[in-house]
């Protein structure tokens, strides 16, 4: 019986020993790019918004923090000295409310219909595929749809909504609908079926089972998905730009039939102007937008982590 030399047990031992940690380090670095980018984004925007040009170093944020309040309060004006985003903030809040009003009931309803009332089969597969594809349609295509369907109503003047908040909100609602449906389905699926069986066995109808037992259990999941979806809608620029949020409006909409402007659209209008002053105003708007969105997203993540159903 020959003795195998010990080296043959581990061929290329050194290479293997080396490759592992190197690869691990590369993976860690790749993951950290995300975190780095996040901090660069926040830092650069804060510096551009609150820093004072070349007179102060980028970290001189403190003395200029009052500017943030000005951005919130002041109405849009082309003069950058006194420019602000009040009209845009109001417009975006209107859009947010109306979008939630249209999209959430419809999205949750569609998801409940698919998950709880449609037997698995061809119909369900077809609708499911349709929703998955809708979720991948670029947002600007929804803008085109909204332009033709809501703003102009194919040229039927009496049905056209014009460049009103209605048209903007309906467009955004269609945009987030598939995302809300997918999130709600996910939440409904995580409700254990024993719950349904118990309710049905006690004589509840299928609708009563859904209304009284399944939906309440799924609320945290639905809430998380909805907040994430709606916060995406509020950050969208392209579709709102397409359906006619005007750039330079310096009044606040009184009702959903009014013309409006949205925060991202105002940011775009400032950002595309040449000149450092305009860019610092744009950065101020972005700061406002990021504060709103990151708050919404953090709330969603907290809700999810708090109510996460333990996996068995």
């Amino acid at each position: 019986m020959s003795v195998v030399e010990s080296d043959n047990y581990e061929p290329e031992r050194r290479a293997r020993r080396l490759a592992g940690p190197l690869f691990g380090a590369a993976c860690l670095l790749a993951t950290l790019t995300g975190v780095v980018v996040l901090s660069v984004v926040l830092g650069a925007v804060a510096a551009a918004a609150l820093g004072h040009g070349s007179q102060h170093p980028w970290y001189a944020i403190g003395p200029n923090a009052w500017k943030l309040g000005r951005f919130l309060v002041s109405l849009t004006q082309k003069f950058s000295e006194d420019a602000g985003f009040r009209a845009g903030v109001y417009g975006s809040l209107w859009l947010l409310a109306l979008t939630v009003l249209f999209a959430v009931p419809t999205g949750v309803g569609a998801a409940v219909f698919l998950e709880e009332f449609t037997p698995p089969g061809r119909l369900r597969r077809a609708i499911q595929m349709n929703i998955a594809n809708l979720a991948g349609v670029p947002s600007i295509v929804y803008g085109i749809l909204g332009l033709a369907l809501f703003v102009r109503a194919f040229g039927f003047e009496s049905f056209a909504l014009g460049r009103s908040l209605w048209a903007g909100a309906l467009t955004l609602a269609l945009l987030v609908l598939p995302v809300i449906v997918l999130a709600t389905q996910e939440a409904l699926r995580s409700v254990p079926s024993s719950l349904r069986h118990a309710a049905l066995a006690l004589g509840a109808s299928r609708w009563e089972t859904v209304r009284d037992h399944v939906l309440p259990m799924a609320v945290p999941g639905i809430l998380t998905g909805t907040i994430l979806a709606v916060s995406r809608a509020i950050g969208e620029t392209a579709p709102v730009l397409m359906v006619g949020a005007a750039g330079s409006i310096d009044w606040i909409p009184n009702g959903p039939g009014d013309r409006y402007t949205a925060l991202p659209v105002e940011i775009y209008n400032y950002a595309k102007e040449p000149g450092v002053e305009f860019q610092s105003v744009a950065a101020g708007g972005i700061l406002l937008l990021l504060v709103i969105l990151l708050t919404m997203n953090s709330i969603a993540i907290v809700i999810r982590n708090k109510y996460r159903v333990p996996t068995r």
Binding site: G34, L38, V45, T237, Y268, A282, A283, I286, N297
Partner: peptide, 14 residues
Amino acid sequence: ELLAGIPTIVYGFL
């Protein structure tokens, strides 16, 4: 996930 929630206009500005 937070990174994924940053709107695209911000990236354009950057």
